[in-house]
Design a protein around this nucleic acid. Structure first.
Lengths: 347, 347
DNA sequence: TTGAAAGCGGTACCAA
DNA sequence: TTGGTACCGCTTTCAA
């Protein structure tokens, strides 16, 4: 229906009147081939528009040159940036990479992993928050180099890249506090799992430490601007009126900004907002987002390096620490005077 | 270094004391296997943690269940959304899909196509603007179902999905014109190729039709908010002061908004801005973007359907037309009174 | 320098 | 209901 099958090594060999071994040699520039033979083969390849079947090659060689990467939410630039960095580095070493997206579904994660294993990827990078202990365990037992970001534990075949969620979040809250803020909200997203919990825990413990000086509210919605928008409506709808909203990440913060605006609140005059990641859109938000800069580029490259033997297989089995940096932009400022209401929150 | 090789069909067969044929049968639930035998095999599979090698399978059965998709710029939600829609539909039919990104490099496009062909994908969707005629030609000759978006020509094995770039852009300009705008700017991006040219051409011809009543300026930069920002600085820096900026897409428009703001201009009071695509971020922009809604979801699903024989291979070789819809939001309004300057443009 | 042939990990047809 | 076996398309000894 779509035309003839593509040409095979055999076809080329026949046309060039040589053995398949010889064709293979010229295709891979391995072994030695007399120059006249070579050009005869080359001509045949050209003639037939021959394209080697990578699957067969990988199978025969017993090794694969593609890496796998699984992320929670490609639409969030955070993940996409890491993917692109990983891909770039991988390509430098002659590797391809295939991505899969889970949308935070633990079930999808399981099937993505299976699919990658079935593809016999040379290495697998997981940048997901929904990794459950059993899967983590299982990965540790696979004959496959793995990189885990922000979740799980290192193992002989797994490198862990860990970001300081807790410290960073405390840093943000502290910054807000020293600028006079006393009424906080934390906007997270629905995932009952580790890393994001660390951010939330940091927020809560900070609140606890400040004691009765502060009040706060915790909400969660999906990881998207919509999620941020709905979360904001929920906060405001409850009657609580924060002067600072700490967001789990920039992507949601974009929606929080929108939610505040629609309620007639001005950022940062009435409310300060912080993000996390320093996604490229963060500085294009209006106002530009104050956030924690996470070195996604470095993370992606390191992940690739850890998975590619020639590159740096050395730090397989290690744990790498990443410390984000606070970037103060326009979305935060001093708290408004407490007893100077700035307009009533709208649903 | 990463442990033993994974178990093979052979291993399972030996352990279960049956032939590989039988193991294959139970793995594929094909043929008939006595229930005791089956459970013996199942046990062996479990025992060995056997995972079939997809590459070998595809090779043996002579067919692949993965689709390929190549896009120009994954960071632009336009492309990502199409990818996700395509992937979703593909999965419904039991297909995987691998994406590749070209960043608008014609060279990268060529190697991406090669890589997909080498992978023996079952079908290939190209959502790129940088497709050059020779490559398009070559694709039409491959024994492979292809979908082309907004570029190239249909062929026996290629379905073309065409969006009305020209009409849509004229529609936008007309809308702006009837709202009193007379000084326009067009912000495009660097690609000397077809589809985007259609948008630009539409803009230019509209200008020509309005004749001396209007003045305009054309600029181009990269497909990103940065690009939009730089383009805006360039316009304003030239001393020209448009009352309406027509952007090639939403992604760049985000940056244009920023650029205008940094120059002290207010949207839409001083300047109106339009995008294209209706990316999800468009409505989260401040102000929300007026734009043309392109049904990315539908496009992605249709592309998948066209590539999957069981789904709808029927419309292979056809040309499908897509007509976006104008969405008026907050970033556009009536032109400011002409001789009422609203602040001097800053570099 | 070249070819024959044994895999790589499966599938599927044909006999048994 | 099973096993034997000839491929799928390519790589890689081993001999010639």
């Amino acid at each position: 229906m779509t035309g003839p099958k593509s040409a095979t090594l055999m076809d080329v060999a026949r046309l060039a009147r040589v053995s398949t071994a010889t064709v293979s040699r010229v295709v891979n520039s391995s072994g030695t081939v007399r120059s006249v033979t070579r050009s005869r083969v080359l001509r045949a390849i050209e003639e037939l528009d021959y394209r080697p079947d990578e699957r067969a090659r990988a199978l025969a060689r017993g090794e694969s040159r593609t890496l796998g990467m699984i992320v929670s939410n490609l639409k969030n630039d955070f993940f996409l940036d890491i993917f692109q960095a990983l891909e770039g580095e991988a390509r430098r070493w002659g590797y391809d990479v295939v991505v899969a997206n889970t949308d935070y579904h633990a079930g999808r994660l399981v099937s993505c992993v299976r699919s990658m294993v079935a593809r016999r990827v040379a290495g697998l990078a997981l940048v997901v928050t929904e990794l459950e202990p059993e899967l983590a365990q299982e990965l540790g037992e696979q004959p496959l180099p793995v990189v885990l970001y922000d979740v799980g534990l290192p193992a002989p075949n797994v490198t862990k890249i860990q970001i300081s969620d807790y410290q960073s979040t405390r840093r943000i809250v502290e910054y807000l506090y020293t600028h006079g803020h006393r009424r906080f909200a934390f906007v997270g997203h629905h995932t009952g799992h580790d890393p994001l919990q660390a951010r939330q825990r940091a927020f809560l413990e900070a609140m606890r430490d400040y004691g009765s000086q502060v009040s706060y509210k915790l909400v969660a919605d999906s990881d998207s601007p919509y999620g941020g928008l709905r979360a904001t409506r929920q906060i405001l709808g409850s009657g609580f009126r924060p002067t600072a909203v700490v967001c789990l990440n920039d992507y949601m913060a974009l929606g929080v900004l929108k939610g505040l605006r629609e309620a007639g609140l001005e950022v940062p005059r009435d409310v300060s907002v912080t993000g996390f990641d320093d996604v490229s859109l963060a500085k294009f938000a209006n106002p530009a987002l104050t956030t924690m800069a996470v070195p996604r580029d470095w993370i992606g490259r390191s992940a690739a390096a850890a998975l590619i033997p020639d590159a740096n297989g050395g730090n397989l089995g290690r744990e790498i620490q990443v410390d984000p940096e606070l970037l103060i932009r326009e979305s935060t400022g001093p708290a408004p005077t407490l007893d100077d209401p700035v307009g009533d929150p709208v649903s």
